[in-house]
């Protein structure tokens, strides 16, 4: 049994994934225009947080009141990190670049490792959020003897069905894929233009989704993106659309990556 498990964990696929994970962690520094780029990445990450939190602001945008949520900041961090991957890529040496694997594998596994680990991260986030809500409700119940919060918890958990969580994961793919794709643009000014373009697109998506969603908002903040999404008419159709866009953007990112990794003679 142990050897089967050992073989499974130590096959090439997982080894490359682990190597990619190590590669992502190793990279840190920057070369040239790094200060300006870091500032722009931070601005963009904050904008992402604002636009994602607009999805949480309830049907009709609720007179533009922006509710910042934990989830929005997670997406902001994802965008910031994926954008900074471009800066990180310039920092070598890394085990990923000296390991004897082809450039296609290198590009694919760098993406796969990020996507797989991030998906786990989002699932963990939801599980942690549910656990946190549950414990919070327990404390309130113990302190006050009121059951209303538990009702709220059950209501909010029910809001997060499969399609809602999938929407969150796809949203992550969109933000991650866009960030990585942008990081491969060589020209600094063009890179900046695309960073802001992603946020304009996110803003448009937020407006559409918030306005199309039905009335009946009032969940715990962390679940709001999911809640708004779940209230969309024909949400599975929306999900398919968002999924297609997400996969398309990630594919573009992989293509850019393969193109960039292709070894050239000087």
């Amino acid at each position: 049994m142990k050897s089967v498990l050992h073989k499974f964990i130590h096959n090439d696929f997982f080894n490359y994934l682990r190597m990619s994970a190590i590669y992502s962690k190793t990279s840190t520094a920057v070369k040239g225009k790094e200060f300006a780029e870091i500032i722009i990445i931070i601005i963009n990450a904050i904008m992402t947080a604002v636009f994602v939190s607009m999805l949480s602001s309830g049907p009709g945008g609720k007179s533009g009141v922006v509710e910042t949520s934990f989830e929005a900041f997670i997406f902001a961090i994802v965008f910031g990190v994926s954008l900074s991957m471009g800066i990180n890529r310039r920092k070598k040496p890394s085990i990923m670049y000296v390991a004897p694997i082809s450039f296609i594998k290198r590009a694919l596994f760098a993406h796969l490792s990020c996507i797989i680990f991030a998906t786990f991260f989002i699932v963990f986030l939801f599980a942690f959020s549910a656990l946190f809500n549950f414990l919070f409700c327990l404390i309130i119940l113990a302190a006050t003897g009121k059951w209303e919060f538990f009702h709220n918890f059950i209501f909010s958990t029910a809001g997060a069905d499969g399609s809602g969580i999938m929407f969150c994961i796809f949203l992550f793919f969109i933000i991650f894929g866009s960030g990585v794709s942008i990081s491969y643009i060589k020209k600094f000014s063009l890179r900046c233009v695309f960073m802001f373009a992603v946020n304009i697109a996110l803003f448009a998506l937020s407006l559409i989704l918030v306005n199309v969603a039905a009335e009946g908002h009032g969940f715990v903040a962390n679940w709001n993106v999911v809640a708004v999404f779940n209230e969309l008419p024909k949400s599975w159709l929306w999900l398919a659309g968002v999924g297609a866009v997400a996969l398309g953007i990630c594919a573009v990112s992989v293509i850019f990556s393969i193109k960039s990794e292709k070894p050239k003679e000087f």
């Binding site: 000296v98 450039f103 070894p263």
Partner: peptide, 25 residues
């Protein structure tokens, strides 16, 4: 040439860089 023999070249060369090139954690 590296471009035509990427994997073969990387298999035949090793380097000790000025700092570790893997996750030191």
């Amino acid at each position: 040439k590296f471009a035509e023999n990427e994997v073969e070249v990387l298999n035949s060369i090793a380097c000790v860089f000025d700092a570790p090139h893997f996750n030191i954690m």
